[in-house]
Computed example of a mutant assay.
Amino acid sequence: MHTPLPASAAPVVAGAGTSRVLWIDVAKGLSILLVVLHHAVVKNLGLDAPEPLAAVAAGWGAVTSALKPVRMPLFFVLSGYVAARAVHRPWAQVRRRALAPYYTYVVWLLLLGAFFSVERLLPMNRTQDLGELAEDLVWASTGVWFLYALALYFVLAKLLAGLPAGWVLGGAALVSALSSQLGIEQWNRFSVLFHFTYFALGALAPRVVRRLAEGPRGRWGGLLPVAAAYVALAVLLARLPLPISVHLLVASVVGVPLGLRVAAVLARSGPPARLLGWVGRRTLPIYVLHTVVLASLLHLPPLVDLEEGSVVRGVLHPLVVTAVAVLVSLAAHWVLLRLGATWLFTMPGRPARARRQAPRRSTEVRASSSEGPYQVSSRPSTSSQGERSASGPSVAVNS
């Protein structure tokens, strides 16, 4: 059984009838916001910015590139961390962990494929025909590759769970380091190959992740030295002619601890922690819907008019677009659930845990795509305080 973080380092928040470790939800919230910001920069700002703001666009591009070794590696570490006990359970008890994200992947592969076959402005990895669709069912190349990877990584981690964790992590890291040398053209397929190391770290070495999140005692929890080390490492790596996979892997050695420490420190920040935790419990609808919002914005009057060449507007543009994409995605999710479209976000059928708890009276409809970082609620239900709650089902860190 995993020992939870001390209360000072890991505030908990009530939700779904159990306690959630708040820093995990905060980390998920940070990660999904960074994902949306990245797409707002490389897709929307790249199309909207006129020539006078090329330097601003390049600056934003440098910022989001510098965060690449943090956002997705951190997400996968968290995914593996919450699956750490499940990888040691019998297949009959945990097969939904693999089937549910793959089901959600297929649903959104088809829906987004249909949408982006009509919408052609947003730069996207589009599925062009039935042949490419068949390939994507086997090896994801589109923007919903994360869900595919969650299913694949859980199966791999479970198959390898009986081996020494050090050997598994060493082999996974070697594959990650070599992945950019294999001639893979699609970035998302490269990403599927590259990121298993991080899921394996969380699933097979959860104590390491917990120690990284705990950090030293104190208000800033050792955050500033880690941040300084990350900046210094990023500057050094930029000067070295390394393959991109080696560059990302080495940078993530500091980037992942940085993300964990930022989340742990923010988890003690009061209102910001509650807001980020709230977002972190709703990452699935943001993940699958935000590119639809970004594409739609290209066909509407601009949120931030950049034609005058205002540097301030150029700096604010990705932030405004990110906020709108997140809010509209969550609003669309709210509407879809109330129309009964829960099948868009969760595999039909009751999880085994829910069946074991029956016939307890409950109005909850659980909707976890993976019982990992991408979780989403499809209820309404009532919390123990009698308040309306929309938080997703919790997977206890030490369960």
Results as ranks from 00 to 15, higher is better:
Ser79Ala: 15
Val231Phe: 00
Val192Gly: 12
Arg120Met: 09
Gly259Ile: 07
Leu133Arg: 09
Phe194Cys: 04
Thr18Val: 10
Val326Gln: 11
Leu249Phe: 03
Leu237Ile: 14
Gly202Cys: 03
Pro50Gly: 01
Lys158Phe: 00
Lys68Gly: 07
Leu147Thr: 02
Leu130Arg: 11
Leu337Trp: 04
His299Trp: 05
Leu336Trp: 03
Lys158Cys: 02
Leu236Cys: 06
Ala341Tyr: 09
Arg261Phe: 09
Arg282Gly: 13
Gly171Met: 04
Ala177Gly: 10
Pro69Phe: 01
Ser378Ala: 15
Leu133Phe: 15
Leu258Gln: 09
Ser389Arg: 13
Met1Phe: 12
Pro6Phe: 06
Arg353Glu: 14
His195Gln: 10
Ala7Leu: 10
Glu51Lys: 11
Arg282Pro: 11
Leu306Cys: 06
Leu248Asn: 10
Ala228Asn: 09
Val250Asp: 02
Val262Ile: 15
Leu327Tyr: 04
Phe115Thr: 12
Arg89Glu: 13
Thr18Phe: 05
Leu240Ala: 10
Ala40Leu: 06
Val106Gln: 12
Leu53Ile: 05
Pro373Thr: 11
Trp60Arg: 09
Met1Arg: 14
Arg366Pro: 14
Trp145Ile: 05
Val320Asp: 08
Val41Thr: 12
Ala352Gly: 15
Ala134Ser: 10
Thr382Leu: 15
Val56Lys: 00
His333Tyr: 07
Gln357Tyr: 08
Leu110Trp: 05
Arg355Thr: 12
Leu258Lys: 07
Arg353Gly: 11
Ala165His: 09
Arg85Ala: 13
Ala227Ser: 12
Asp129Pro: 07
Leu249Cys: 01
Leu249Gln: 05
Val376Thr: 14
Val293Gln: 02
Ala140Glu: 02
Asp305His: 05
Gly386His: 07
Gly80Val: 01
Leu240Asp: 03
Ser378Thr: 14
Leu339Glu: 09
Trp91Asp: 04
Ser389Thr: 13
Gly255Ala: 09
Pro216Tyr: 02
Gly386Cys: 04
Phe75Ala: 13
Gly270Gln: 09
His39Leu: 01
Tyr103Gln: 08
Ser384Trp: 06
Ala157Met: 02
Arg71Gly: 14
Val82Ser: 08
Ala177Arg: 06
Leu224Ser: 11
Asn44Gly: 01
Tyr153Val: 01
Val63Arg: 12
Ala114Tyr: 07
Gly255Pro: 05
Gln385Glu: 10
Ser362Val: 00
Pro123Ala: 02
Ser296Ala: 15
Arg97Gln: 08
Glu307Arg: 15
Gly171Ala: 03
Ala7Phe: 02
Val155Trp: 08
Pro302Leu: 02
Leu223Phe: 10
Ala10His: 03
Arg71Asp: 13
His247Asp: 12
Leu339Val: 09
Ala58Phe: 03
Ser296Tyr: 00
Leu237Ser: 02
Ala358Thr: 13
Ser252Cys: 07
Leu137Gly: 12
Gly113His: 06
Val315Asp: 08
Gln93Ile: 08
Leu236Phe: 03
Tyr374Trp: 13
